[in-house]
């Protein structure tokens, strides 16, 4: 039984990382109907910017001195990495997606694949393809209760992810920009006629989604110990599946989907075989798309004839 609870805890913490990334996919898809293939790479870049920021702020010195990295500095790393990724997201949107926004839908999709490949390979040139140990910006502490081990890192992942998701919810529901985003996701043309600055709102969407992905990247690095330039491919894909599972375009759906995918993956790895932990995600994807393509919380939209 404790084995089971252990898997659940691990699954929920992995799932909340997927949820953070899935939010970016779902927000962009909700507005532009574009699968932002490069989102997984933004997540990877977020992890790397966290890596370099931590090293710039002297994480090695603290480590050598046997002291933990101060929590305040860890938060600085998080915030700056999120800001850097927000900038990257905005740049990608402006350079690659905006010019093809009104083209047939396959054009932006192929462009997105191109951006994703470009970032992956640029990262391999910049950072080398070798995996790197993630700096311990949080020193691991273990708590054991009834045979279940909980680390402070897993707890931090929950707390940070939860705080960001609540923040996003409040932002989307309460602020002017958030309302503009929701308006755009319903009807871009009508929103434009109502005086909403469409470009600025899309820019904000990319910035927020990318910042959340960067947070996911840092948490992922802490959780999985190493990072590499291709980490965004599979993780990004799984997060996308999470968004589809929850109902793409639906913000609570992305959270639910992320947690479910994380759980499914851990339970498969724990009880079936670690070899199939990646395959289960794709199986879920195929099943959900065939049985309920609008996702768990999504609504069916009919094309106008």
């Amino acid at each position: 039984m404790s084995e089971f609870f252990q898997q659940i805890i691990n699954g929920l913490s992995l799932g909340s990382i997927y949820a953070l990334i899935a939010l970016g996919y779902t927000m962009v898809y909700g507005i532009l109907k574009l699968i932002n293939f490069a989102h997984g790479e933004v997540f990877m870049m977020g992890a790397y910017s966290g890596y370099y920021l931590a090293s710039w702020l002297g994480v090695e010195r603290y480590q050598a001195a046997g002291r933990g990295f101060p929590l305040g500095l860890a938060l600085v790393v998080l915030v700056l990495a999120m800001a850097a990724s927000a900038l990257l997201g905005v740049l990608i949107e402006a350079l690659a997606y905006r010019p093809v926004r009104s083209a047939p839908r396959l054009t932006p999709l192929i462009t997105a694949i191109g951006v994703s490949l470009f970032l992956q390979n640029a990262a391999m040139l910049l950072f080398t393809p070798n995996p790197r140990a993630y700096p311990p910006i949080l020193r691991e502490l273990r708590f054991a209760a009834g045979g279940v081990i909980v680390t402070n890192i897993k707890l931090a992942i929950f707390v940070v992810a939860l705080a960001l998701m609540v923040g996003l919810h409040l932002f989307v529901q309460r602020t002017w920009t958030g309302r503009a985003m929701r308006a755009l996701s319903m009807n871009i043309d009508a929103a434009r006629l109502m005086g909403i600055d469409v470009n600025a709102t899309i820019r904000a969407t990319f910035a927020i989604g990318s910042a959340l992905a960067a947070a996911g990247g840092i948490l992922f690095g802490l959780d999985q110990i190493t990072i590499n330039p291709l980490m965004g491919v599979l993780t990004g894909l799984k997060a996308f599946v999470a968004a589809v599972l929850g109902g793409i375009g639906n913000i609570p759906g992305a959270v639910v989907g992320g947690l479910l995918i994380g759980l499914a993956e851990q339970l498969t790895a724990g009880y079936l075989s670690p070899d199939y932990r990646d395959a289960i995600t794709f199986l879920i994807l195929v099943v959900i798309l065939v049985l309920k393509p609008e996702g768990l919380l999504g609504v069916v939209r009919q094309e106008k004839v």
Binding site: V100, I113, S116, N121
Partner: peptide
């Protein structure tokens, strides 16, 4: 290749 794809699309 990636740049080629993007440039062709644009």
């Amino acid at each position: 290749y990636a740049l080629l794809l993007i440039v062709i699309m644009l």
